[in-house]
Design a protein around this nucleic acid. Structure first.
Length: 493
RNA sequence: GCCCCGUUCGUCUAGUGGCCCAGGACGCUGGCCUCUCACGCCGGAAGCACGGGUUCGAAUCCCGUACGGGGUACCA
């Protein structure tokens, strides 16, 4: 069990993407785990935007992040648009806060000014034959004379955090005990020479200021943790916070070729799944499976069930490959969990998009859709599949086109079907089936498959369609007969 | 290179010393159902990286090797 807050207080977690590019599946998975953890513990879910990199952050991306969260249905208690006691929640609007922290850190010698260039550092490392990369602490204890000499040269400086000696150890919520010797963790820069704060400062500072108790993030940030823990301890010492948060590092989501799924990979983009007709609950369920299992023999569940069962200590530490086939299968299960009404509601935008129905929808089409959906509900794996499946029911005779044509042998079948159908008294599924079976199967002696195949093509235009007799009932006598006639007129390819 | 993390069927996982000659799911595959396609149902092939320990007993604990991944910025 994990309820552990070191201060015995309420759980506060955060999700803090940087608005660069479009949201990807790793983003969604990290958001989901944080959200589920917060909800499971009845805690607070904070949404923060890390837009300190002015070069790469865009407003478009910011909108995408919020849109993604909303589409997924992961609601936040504090953050953009909802506010909260620690507002603002965009780092670009918090610069004074960071300046204040920086000042106090410097006053207590937790930091120092560094005048070195990157080239100088690497040259020194090389000359010393050091295996360790990164800053060597050259400016740690500059005298006043040395400082003024550098300044006289016109050098600019960055602020560096003074890493303590020894080792940093923490109990990772996912991995257990992790230790880094600080000799391998160089003093790091907290802000640029121009004073702009960096992630290295801003991320822990906001976690401290926002009283975050648990930091759940990707494994790619594991090696920044030994830097953040001493910084957090300094912030506690200076009274900015009461505790160092607990950390848990989630397995990365890998793409093809076993590399971390990058924004370059089309499979990585969350909205691709939305546009392809995935359900948010399907995507979420699949993503949850990448590193976590609700039970030994189950992998389809609702968000509510996940909230009830989610335990961060059950998360599997190894990286997981994203498998589209399984994602589709899980999504398909969620499609079938929806009521027909709900499914209809979700399918509608895709039908409009495909031009199957108008926007707004005519009453007649809405009624037809209500009758047609039960026929295809359990046949769909994605919302976008509705349009090709149902299109023939909504198409008028002018715009209707067959994807397949009836062959010569089939034409006789269609002709026989047409004549028999024309004599039906009550146009209903049962009657249609009875008549067709009698004339085609009993009288002509055809196998059902061969008997109904040509009729199916004539009516729906496809070899594969929703159930034939029901479809014909919905289409009505006149249009059904017109379709049969139409198929006889068309020239076989 | 160095540091850190990881390693159960093709893939995602269950498994925390005996219940495991390893369970589920996707995919693959044989069959049933059937007006097509799906759904559903029944069956099959497929895995504890390797080597040493510890133990009466190891997929499970320890060490090493190999392999994979992440990091190594005045990005996040």
């Amino acid at each position: 069990m994990t309820t552990p807050t070191s201060n015995g207080g309420a759980v506060r977690v955060r999700f803090c993407p940087s608005p660069t590019g479009s949201p990807h599946v790793g983003f969604a998975r990290a958001a989901l785990y944080n959200w589920a953890f917060a909800r499971h513990h009845g805690g607070t879910f904070v949404f923060r935007v890390e837009d300190t990199d002015k070069e790469r952050s865009t407003e478009e991306s910011y909108d995408g992040m919020l849109g993604a969260m909303r589409w997924l249905g992961l609601d936040w208690d504090e953050g953009p648009e909802v506010g909260g006691p620690h507002a603002p929640y965009r780092q670009s609007e918090r610069t004074e806060l960071y300046a204040d922290v920086l000042e106090k850190l410097a006053a207590s010698s937790y930091t120092y000014d560094c005048f070195c260039t990157t080239d100088e550092v690497t040259a020194r490392r090389k000359a010393a034959g050091s295996k360790v990369q990164g800053y060597d602490g050259f400016c740690r204890d500059l005298s006043a004379e040395q400082r003024s000499a550098f300044e006289a040269e016109g050098r600019s400086s960055v602020v560096r955090f003074r890493m303590p000696d020894g080792a940093v150890t923490w109990h990772d919520l996912v991995r257990g005990e992790v230790t880094f010797e600080t000799e391998f963790v160089p003093d790091f820069a907290l802000c640029r020479a121009n004073g702009d704060p960096l992630y290295t400062l801003v991320n822990p500072v906001d976690d401290a200021l926002m009283q975050i108790t648990h930091v759940l993030r990707g494994e790619d940030l594991l090696s920044s943790t030994p830097r953040q823990i001493p910084l957090h301890q300094a912030l506690v010492d200076l009274g900015f916070s009461q505790q160092v948060p607990q950390f848990g590092h989630l397995p990365l989501v890998m793409g093809e070729g076993n590399k971390k799924l990058s924004k370059r990979d089309p499979q990585a983009h969350l909205f691709m799944y939305r546009d392809a007709g995935f359900l948010p609950e399907g995507v979420l369920n699949y993503l949850a499976l990448l590193g976590w299992a609700i039970a030994a023999d189950r992998d389809v569940f609702t968000l509510e069930e996940m909230v009830e069962k989610f335990d961060i200590s059950d998360v599997n530490p190894n990286p997981a490959r994203f498998d589209l086939k399984k994602a589709e299968a899980i999504n398909a299960d969620h499609m079938r969990m929806l009521s027909v009404d709900e499914l209809t509601h979700r399918v509608l935008p895709h039908l409009k998009e495909a031009g199957v129905v108008g926007d707004p929808v005519h009453d007649a089409d809405a009624q037809l859709l209500e009758l047609a959906m039960p026929l295809v509900a359990e046949r769909m794996n994605k919302l976008t599949e509705a349009a090709p499946m149902l299109g023939f029911l909504f198409a008028d005779e002018e715009s209707f086109e067959r994807q397949e044509l009836v062959d010569d042998a089939g034409r006789d079948v269609v002709r026989a079907a047409r004549d028999a159908l024309a004599a039906i008294e009550h146009w209903s599924t049962a009657e249609i089936e009875a008549v067709l079976r009698q004339t085609l199967v009993d009288e002509l002696g055809l196998k059902p498959r061969l008997a109904f195949g040509p009729v199916r093509i004539a009516v729906s235009g496809r070899k594969i369609s929703p159930p034939l007799f029901e479809s014909m009932e919905l289409l009505g006598r006149d249009r059904s007969l017109a379709r049969l006639d139409g198929a006889l007129v068309e020239e076989p390819a």
